[in-house]
Design a protein around this nucleic acid. Structure first.
Lengths: 71, 71
DNA sequence: TTTAACCACGGAGTATTCTCGTCATTCTGT
DNA sequence: ACAGAATGACGAGAATACTCCGTGGTTAAA
């Protein structure tokens, strides 16, 4: 599984767990709504800076967003 | 601690643990030597694609490179 | 049927990462 | 002290992340 897919899946799961829309998350993390959408579709390889900003909003560790199923 | 610093510290530690120079690592991960140097100095925010490529060479999980002291 | 919320997707522009060449500096071993 | 290896530093350009504008599709509720 590609790292982008792992990140996308974790992002989507954590976002929904918090009951946030892509737009809610984008606003709170000061990112663009279409960019969040693109990240969940593996269009881009996010920089670790945005991983950290998203993790903060979702109240998880940055490393959690890069962790696959059995880690 | 900034995410770049955490990544830089983990990168440097894991690289030395494998006995690799920046140039060795760069070559094996198909990255530029001066870029590895810059990453260890927190000049750039690496994309998750390069985190994954570096992690593979260093035989650690990508998430390990973003983990701070007590995670 | 309308209205609203949510999301996929395109294009164009800006900002940043990443590559490459080069030279300077520091470190290591003899 | 010296030579060679490893790293730091810098500028220029290519590649890609990221923003901002909009359009259309789906689903659920009024």
């Amino acid at each position: 599984m590609e790292i982008r897919e792992i990140f996308a899946a974790n992002l989507k799961r954590c976002r929904k767990a918090k009951g946030l829309s892509q737009e809610d998350l984008a606003h709170r993390a000061e990112l663009d709504r279409t960019y969040i959408s693109a990240l969940e579709r593996c269009v881009y390889a996010a920089s670790i800076d945005v991983v950290a900003r998203i993790a903060k909003v979702l109240e998880v560790k940055p490393s959690d967003l890069l962790s696959g199923h059995g880690d």
